[in-house]
Design a protein around this nucleic acid. Structure first.
Lengths: 155, 155
DNA sequence: TCATATGGTCAAGAGAGGTTGACTATTGGC
DNA sequence: GCCAATAGTCAACCTCTCTTGACCATATGA
């Protein structure tokens, strides 16, 4: 009885940019995390990390408060995550030369390596998909996604 | 000192299909959940839901065990979530006519409405983005994403 | 210079989401 | 008809994530 409505739902989803991106992103994220953890032999990467890390790429580091703001949580929520990453040697926390109250979180050389490695895992997944995708289209897809990401991050 | 390496990282990420999809998907997901919750006036949708719901679109419903398998968790973990959605009238849990041990979880008419509404929120976000995107490219982007999603879900 | 705002920490606790283990009911092959 | 495998539930418990609230140190401007 619901079949017709379900069919309509599916068609509408398949025509929604957001839905398509969310599903594709979820699938890549799951496989990427699984891949990294499989190589490490133990769980080292959680979804919380993949949300925090993209915001740590400013050369001079980012304030805890700023991280909390962009993630939409309190600064207390960010603290344990930063502490954990600092413990693992992925980030460093330093005094802010311009404000003695503040501290700046930035990637260590090891942290950059880790992120390059993570990107490598995603690239491997992409390569495994290649045979089933049209070669030229993937490059075009990436180009459009870069443009879209710019728009999304701008606000 | 890390600037050059950070620059390299950024360039490599911007050329990784997985990275681009994960970031775009995250941003859409966050905004979609925020939009639905803002309209409801209270938090009604969590990320756990957006992971479970896409698997509930089979007309005859899905078994708890099957849901657990595709989500990669135990069936005990799925139970509270299904119970919560049943309580909210989004899904119905019925006996499986073919196996008296099993139960089938499926969307109610109200659940389909809710998912259509969620898709509508994503469409609104997409419309708000439209002015800053090239019109023809969005359609092409969707077409490619549909193809990619098919490949990803196939295995 | 003193009041107020801001950056950050510490502590206690709530709630989501997951686990393992023990259990019941039913199925299906032998 | 029996017995191992399967679907699901219940209970106890753990970790992660986040919150509120109290607190200290520094900055800033009237």
């Amino acid at each position: 009885m619901n079949d017709r409505r379900l069919e309509g739902l599916r068609r509408r989803q398949a025509n929604s940019l957001g839905f398509l991106l969310i599903r594709c992103g979820q699938l890549f994220n799951e496989r990427g995390i699984a891949g990294v953890n499989a190589e490490a032999g133990r769980p080292v990467l959680r979804e919380a990390h993949t949300k925090l890390l993209p915001h740590l790429q400013a050369p001079d580091g980012v304030r805890i408060t700023e991280l909390a703001r962009v993630l939409g949580v309190t600064k207390q929520a960010v603290q344990p995550l930063v502490a954990e990453l600092a413990e693992a040697g992925v980030v460093r926390v330093e005094a802010d030369p311009a404000d003695a109250r503040a501290r700046r979180v930035s990637l260590t050389a090891h942290g950059v390596d880790a992120m390059l490695h993570g990107t490598g895992v995603l690239e491997r997944i992409e390569r495994e998909l290649q045979p089933r995708l049209k070669r030229g289209e993937v490059e075009k897809l990436k180009m459009m996604l870069r443009g879209l990401l710019g728009v999304l991050e701008a606000g």
